[in-house]
Simulated assay, not measured.
Amino acid sequence: MKKINLIIATTLFSITFSIGAFAQTETKIGALIGYGTEIENIGIGANAEFPIMEKLTISPSFIYYLPKDESGIKINWFEVNANANYYFLDEENIDVYGIAGLNYSSIKVKYENSFGLGGDFSSSDGRIGLNLGAGANFNIGSSITPFAELKYVIIDGGQLVVAAGVKFNL
Rank of each mutant, 00 (worst) to 15 (best):
I144N: 04
E149G: 03
I8R: 10
G158P: 12
N83F: 06
F62G: 07
N103M: 05
K55I: 06
F17A: 15
I75D: 02
E26S: 06
G101M: 15
K167N: 15
A9Y: 09
G135P: 08
T145Q: 08
I7Y: 10
G133W: 08
G34Q: 08
S59C: 14
L89A: 13
N47C: 10
A163R: 04
N137R: 08
L117I: 14
L56R: 02
G43P: 04
F115L: 15
Y35H: 09
Y97C: 05
E54V: 03
L66S: 08
F115K: 15
D120F: 01
G129C: 09
G20H: 14
D120T: 01
F78P: 05
G135H: 00
V109D: 00
I42M: 07
N47H: 11
A21S: 14
S106P: 01
Y97T: 05
I94P: 11
S14K: 02
Y111C: 00
A100E: 12
Q159M: 11
A148M: 15
G133Y: 04
D69T: 01
W77M: 04
I15K: 03
M1E: 15
F168K: 02
K151M: 12
P67I: 06
I19N: 13
T145A: 06
F138L: 14
K110G: 01
K55R: 10
D90S: 14
G36Y: 06
E112T: 01
I8Q: 08
V161R: 14
I58Y: 14
V109A: 00
I154Y: 12
F78M: 13
T11E: 15
G20Y: 09
Y97Q: 12
S106T: 07
S122C: 02
V161C: 02
K2E: 15
I63Y: 15
S123T: 07
Y104N: 08
S106R: 02
D156P: 05
A163Q: 13
I44H: 04
L170W: 08
I7D: 15
E112G: 05
A100D: 12
D156A: 04
A136H: 07
G158Y: 11
N5P: 01
Y64E: 13
Y97S: 10
F17C: 14
G101R: 11
F121N: 12
D120L: 00
I29N: 05
F50Q: 10
L170S: 13
L6M: 14
I63P: 05
L160A: 12
S106F: 12
G98A: 13
G157L: 00
D69S: 08
P51M: 04
I4H: 08
L117F: 10
L102M: 15
L89D: 03
V153K: 08
G135F: 08
E40L: 04
G98V: 05
F62A: 10
L6I: 14
F22E: 15
G165Y: 14
N81T: 12
N85E: 15
T37A: 07
D125E: 09
E49N: 13
N81Y: 12
A148L: 13
A48C: 13
G118P: 11
I42G: 06
A48L: 10
D125R: 04
T37D: 14
K110C: 00
